[in-house]
């Protein structure tokens, strides 16, 4: 009823305007024109309201604002990577992700709880809302509370979760007397004098860099690095016997070769020191593999070559080379050198 009345007034106003404008146009009365324009504007608004198309106001009556903080970087699990194992049947023959992928601060719900208890705890009891949504936190709170939550995540949570370590890994084969000096330094840092001796020995051909690699890793995560080869070989044959026949079913194996590394660098509150856990495996295969002829199964291949496994745990300075371990074979003394550099993180 009201709506119909409003409509009638609007149409009558429009007619009034048409008639008035037709005559007023020739009279040059600016004041009158302005009034008529104003009137027409009001009539248009009334017509729009009558059609139900008015633009709705958007301000929240409580002064709360909706905000969304994406925390994909904190919520995504950080997988540990497992390097390949040299024997079939052992876990992770070719390497894999560990099944557990811990999150930096737990699940999204746990991050949410951390925010709730750390940022203006009183706000969440007086109407402000916090909810997980996808990989984000959705907030409905006064603007200053939203800003405080965002600042807490950026300054308290992210820098630690983003801490990245550049791991330099070197394998150095050294002759005496450098080998003796490196052996004495194993488990500790390389000082400037020893560093200079290494460079000098490399230049003189008394030491050789067998491997020089780099990998990035988040603090506390185990990474896997492999520079080498997979080589297929016929290593065996399954013999099957029936009533009047036998047959040899060749068995193809895969040799895992080269330098494989699992490393975990942990940087805590003192970024000047880095805790390292390193597992290094190194396998070489003499080529071509030795052939072995058998009576019923044909020629098989018998791989052979140098092998080494080294596990090391050490604590070294940020950006300092250290001798992690030694692997010695007759006439070949090789040293595993590492240098962790804490380089990444939130800006």
């Amino acid at each position: 009823m009201r709506s119909r009345l409003g409509s009638a007034v609007a149409w009558a106003a429009a007619g009034f305007l048409l008639g008035a404008a037709a005559l007023a146009g020739g009279q040059g009365d600016e004041d009158l024109r302005e009034k008529l324009i104003e009137l027409e504007s009001l009539a248009a608004r009334l017509r729009a309201l009558d059609a139900g198309s008015a633009e709705a106001p958007v301000a929240d009556d409580r002064g709360f604002e909706l905000d969304q903080i994406h925390v994909t970087d904190l919520d995504a699990g950080i997988p540990d990577y497992i390097g390949p194992r040299p024997r079939e049947g052992e876990t992770s023959f070719f390497g894999a992700r560990a099944e557990e992928a811990p999150q930096a601060y737990g699940t999204l719900e746990e991050i949410l709880e951390l925010v709730r208890t750390s940022v203006r705890p009183e706000a969440w009891e007086t109407g402000s809302q916090l909810q997980p949504l996808g990989r984000s936190l959705l907030l409905l709170a006064p603007p200053d509370v939203n800003r405080a939550a965002r600042a807490f995540i950026d300054t308290e949570l992210r820098p630690d979760a983003h801490r990245t370590v550049n791991l330099r890994i070197g394998i150095l084969e050294a002759d005496e007397p450098l080998a003796a000096a490196l052996a004495a330094a194993t488990g500790g840092e390389i000082d400037a004098a020893l560093r200079a001796r290494i460079e000098e020995a490399v230049g003189a051909g008394q030491a050789r860099r067998v491997f020089d690699g780099r990998a990035l890793a988040l603090s506390r995560q185990q990474i896997a690095f492999w520079h080498g080869a997979q080589a297929a070989t016929v290593v065996d044959a399954d013999v099957e016997v029936a009533a009047r026949s036998t047959v040899a079913d060749p068995f193809v194996g895969v040799e895992i070769l080269g330098t494989r590394l699992e490393a975990r660098a942990t940087v805590a509150d003192d970024p000047a020191r880095v805790r390292l856990r390193i597992s290094l495996a190194s396998d070489e295969m003499d080529l071509p593999p030795r052939a072995a002829e058998t009576s019923d199964t044909g020629e098989l291949q018998m791989p052979a070559g140098a092998t080494a496994r080294i596990d090391a745990d050490l604590w070294t300075g940020n950006d300092k080379w250290a001798v992690a371990a030694e692997r010695s074979l007759p006439g070949r003394r090789r040293f595993l050198l590492v240098r962790p550099s804490v380089i990444g993180g939130a800006r």
Partner: peptide, 23 residues
């Protein structure tokens, strides 16, 4: 590689593999 059933091909794959997370 020859076998009594016929030849088998034995590839060697040289690789560089990095599995890691970083910022």
């Amino acid at each position: 590689h020859p076998t009594e059933h016929g030849p088998i091909e034995l590839p060697t794959k040289r690789l560089t593999r990095v599995e890691a997370s970083f910022w």
